[in-house]
Design a protein around this nucleic acid. Structure first.
Lengths: 148, 148
DNA sequence: CTCACTGCAAATGCTTTGCAAAATC
DNA sequence: GATTTTGCAAAGCATTTGCAGTGAG
């Protein structure tokens, strides 16, 4: 079963109604996970498709999906929340370029040992984590070099 | 030289004017770093001292301190920015309790090897990082146990 | 049919900004 | 004294909410 189908099944089985708006919003997130979209960006897409959807509905749908553990709200410091699909057993990290503000993904999780250490030492039951590296991406670094 | 004096020196040497408001706001941050204060919280303190300071000034001072690399703006998901002193060579992480929303500090940095690995593999020059663990703190865990 | 869901517009909460008065250098 | 900086109030954004109408089950 594809991620898309799985997510829709979660929605259908949640007891909440499966509306066209929710279906479309979920699809957009699923199709653009790597883009870490904001509510406004998702809204722009549905609006361009001439669907009758309000921005408030987008926010309400995102809130619902988060509650159902389908998506995940993030903050990259640009003043708005961004969302991505929450894939079980697929933890990854983010590289945020402080020059062009692009966000790249590190497609592996290397924190297991660290978590264990922290859990023991601080008596804190860890259920998740966010690791964000700040720095300069290859592109920007290249351009800085050429600019010299 | 204490951190406080150092920070004040940075301010004095920055070319910006050393006003009473800036001095007091900086002091409050320095005295309460572990509390990760918000602009509003800082404002409440100066207001209680009957100092004639506006909330806008607090925001402007925080913006300035961030620019001078004295403090660091953070987001713990509660809808407001929080600030802490930026101490060189003193990287640490945060434990955010998803039950009581308290933020604890992990007073060590264990990401060096990881950073090196990521820099090479992703050709990304890392200048900083944020690591936040989500979970349940000892207190909340204890209370849940007692509640059974 | 019923109740959850929606769009709209108004409200909220954090943060920023315009401006005349005040303070620093 | 000239130029920053400030307080206040108003404006600016992202997000939330109230409400009457709409639609899924």
């Amino acid at each position: 079963m594809s991620i898309t189908e799985k997510a829709k099944e979660i929605l259908a089985n949640s007891g909440y109604k499966v509306t066209n708006q929710r279906k479309r919003i979920l699809e957009i997130i699923l199709d653009n996970t790597h883009r870490h979209m904001s509510a406004e960006e998702i809204y722009e897409i549905v609006k361009d498709e001439n669907l009758d959807v309000g921005l408030a509905t987008v926010y309400r749908a995102l809130e619902l999906f988060e509650e159902l553990n389908i998506i995940h709200k993030m903050n990259f410091g640009d003043g708005r929340s961004r969302y991505e699909l929450k894939e079980e057993d697929h933890h990854h990290h983010h590289l945020v370029c402080t020059s062009c503000n692009e966000v790249f993904e590190v497609d592996e999780d290397l924190l297991d040992q660290l978590e264990e250490k922290v859990e023991k030492k601080y008596k804190f039951r860890i259920t998740g984590h966010h690791l964000k590296f700040l720095g300069i991406c290859e592109n920007c670094h290249e351009q800085q070099r050429l600019g010299d």
